[in-house]
Amino acid sequence: MGDVAVLIPTMRRPESLARALRSVFAQRGVEARLGEIVVIDNDPTGSAAGVVAGLVAESPCPLIYHHEPRPGVATARNAGLTRTKAPLIAFLDDDEAADDDWLARLNAAQAALSTDVVFGPIRGRVPEGTGWASAYLERFFGREGPAGTQIIDYAYGCGNSLMVRATALPGLTPFDPAADRSGGEDDALFQALEARGGTFGWAADAWVDEFAPPHRATMRYALARAFAYGQSPSQLAARDRKPFAVARWMLIGAAQTVVWGAASIAMSAIGSPRRAEMMDRTARGLGKLFWFKGFEPQFYGARELARLDALKAA
């Protein structure tokens, strides 16, 4: 049995899930290390069961299906961890597809750097017809980092990452279920890891593609996510009962809102495509200001299920 498990949470994306799985099946140079692939179906109806069953014969290692009917990204990730004892956990999102040397590159970077977590770069892919904002949306759904593999002093999100379970994922529920609806569970996880002296690394050549579906490849969705990203530092400071840190982040947010908001207006007036970047920065500033309950966008859990049901009925 290998020492690495790949976890893929999924929610009603059958074609995308199949693409993600086949990209893991195609990994090279990890035959002795890839122990199992765990799919966590977060749809209460268990809609991914048939997709997984149909691909079992293609998998080069045990392909495990786990149904977690309680909607929420943190709950799904926690549930997936209960189905494997692997000491190294790689996370791939169900809207991603990995290059065939992805896992080998992550493993090599972790071994070379000896960090608790290693992140890799992401190419954002958006559908045709997204207009003037296409370049921004590709960057938004992508991930850029240093040119070379190295230790870094900050964290990214869980998608396209490799974690040392003993240090990065402690306990039975390392991801906070309170973040099930809005996300941000990985921010809290990595902040706690950093506070314990944990370390982060960057695998510059461990690439995946992330395919944004049409309903997400919009400025409205991207700016809502940018607002939520902006909320995170203020929310984490409030959770840790650090009022001065909350005040500091709110002051930063106010300054960002004024400066980037003015830039957004100016660039919109001349029709510059760069206005998308300025709008993004403005939204993140607003998030730092309006971080409290009642202003939290909901991208996961019951809200996501309701949206998917509405799309299906349309």
Rank of each mutant, 00 (worst) to 15 (best):
L251N: 03
A86K: 15
L7K: 04
C158T: 06
G285K: 09
R241P: 02
A217H: 09
A74Y: 07
D94G: 01
R83H: 15
I152E: 14
E210M: 03
P121I: 00
G131K: 01
L81S: 10
A97L: 03
N160G: 10
P9L: 00
T218G: 12
L236D: 07
R12M: 00
D95Y: 00
E144V: 01
L81P: 10
G198Q: 09
P174Y: 12
R123G: 00
G159Y: 02
A314V: 11
A195R: 15
E194W: 12
R181K: 10
V38F: 10
S268F: 01
R281Y: 11
Q298C: 05
I89L: 13
L289V: 15
S47T: 09
G183S: 05
W202I: 05
Y154T: 11
V24R: 11
A217F: 05
M1E: 13
M279T: 00
G253I: 03
R241Y: 05
A192D: 15
R284Q: 13
L162I: 11
A254Y: 09
Y154F: 15
A79N: 04
P14S: 06
W102Q: 03
A276D: 03
G301E: 01
G2I: 08
A48E: 05
H66R: 10
L137R: 07
R216L: 13
F91V: 12
A283T: 04
V259A: 14
L305Q: 12
K293W: 04
V246C: 07
V73M: 07
M11T: 03
P214G: 04
E15D: 13
F91M: 14
D209S: 05
A255Y: 00
